[in-house]
Each structure stands twice: as C-alpha cells, then as structure tokens.
C-alpha cells in the first residue's frame, strides 16, 4: 500500500512538473501576403469554411481550445499542428511553385473526398469544423477550378 502511495505521489509530482515545461504555441496576428486567401480570389463562404475547418492546423495561427495549456495535451496538439503545417500551410501558399500547388490541391481534393480531413479526432471537439456534404462539394469544386487554372 505504501509503495502505491509513493508511486502515485511521484506521478502527481511529475504531472505538476511537466506543466512548467514551456510549449511553443502556434499563434500569429499577421496574415502574410502569401496566404491562400490573399493569392487567390476565394469566395467568402469558402473562406469561412477553410478558416473554420482547416486553418487551426494548416496555418501559422491556431485558435486554441481550453485544454491547450495542460500538458501533455499541449504536446499532442503541438505535434499535430507541426505535422499539419509540414504537409500544407495555407499561409505560405504563394511561396509554393506551380508544381507543388498542383500536388497540394490534388491532395486537398482527395482528402476531402475521402472524408479524411478534417480529422475525426479534431471534429469530435470542434463540432463547427465539420464539413457537410454540400460544403465538401463546394470546396472540391473550387479547388478543382483553381487546379485547372494553374
């Protein structure tokens, strides 16, 4: 019994201690000129949807949920955002070459078509980030237009 108590205490101390490890946060208050919305003429409805459903992980500015400051949840988020931005960063759209834009658009379309994005683990908390079938069709249609105009 004593040992269990000690272990629990150690865990508790560890839990408290990791709260003091600073986590980097993905926040930026400027929208660069290379942003997807700046480079392209995006209809307002699509802008809203992309902002709501994609930008948290695919741009330099995340609208964080309340638990973002609690470790290890914060690390988990940080990891996700890093991976998301590596794959596609809407803020850097203007810097992508035509070849890469084409690749990214193809992936965006395919991910949305297959219901892979936004991630289930994300939409379970962010209910408003879910894309309805109409939303999906509209976004796919727009991305196809963009792809054909490259």
């Amino acid at each position: 019994m004593r040992i269990i108590k000690i272990i629990l205490l150690i865990l508790l101390v560890a839990f408290v201690a990791i709260q003091f490890i600073p986590a980097s946060r993905n926040i930026s208050d400027t929208v660069p000129k290379t942003d997807f919305m700046e480079v392209n003429k995006v209809p307002a409805t699509i802008q809203n949807k992309l902002q709501m459903s994609c930008y948290d992980c695919h741009s330099n500015n995340t609208d964080y949920p309340w638990y973002n400051k609690i470790q290890p949840a914060a690390w988990f988020l940080e990891d996700h955002i890093k991976e998301g931005k590596d794959e596609l960063n809407f803020n850097e759209w203007g810097d992508y070459s035509a070849r890469r834009k084409n690749s990214k658009l193809r992936s965006i379309i395919s991910q949305i078509e297959d219901d892979k994005m936004p991630l289930d683990s994300y939409t379970i908390i962010h209910r408003d980030a879910r894309l309805s079938e109409t939303d999906q069709k509209e976004i796919i249609k727009y991305m196809n237009l963009l792809k054909n105009s490259l």
Binding site: K5, L8, L12, F15, P72, F76
Partner: peptide, 18 residues
Amino acid sequence: LSILTMTLVTLTAMSCKD
C-alpha cells in the same frame, strides 16, 4: 490521487499515439 493518476495516464496515452 488515483483520479489524478487516471487523468495523467489517459493524457499520456493520448500523447503516445503520435
């Protein structure tokens, strides 16, 4: 303590996924 541990374990498990 045990509630705290459970929380911790859950959170850790979540962060391990990646």
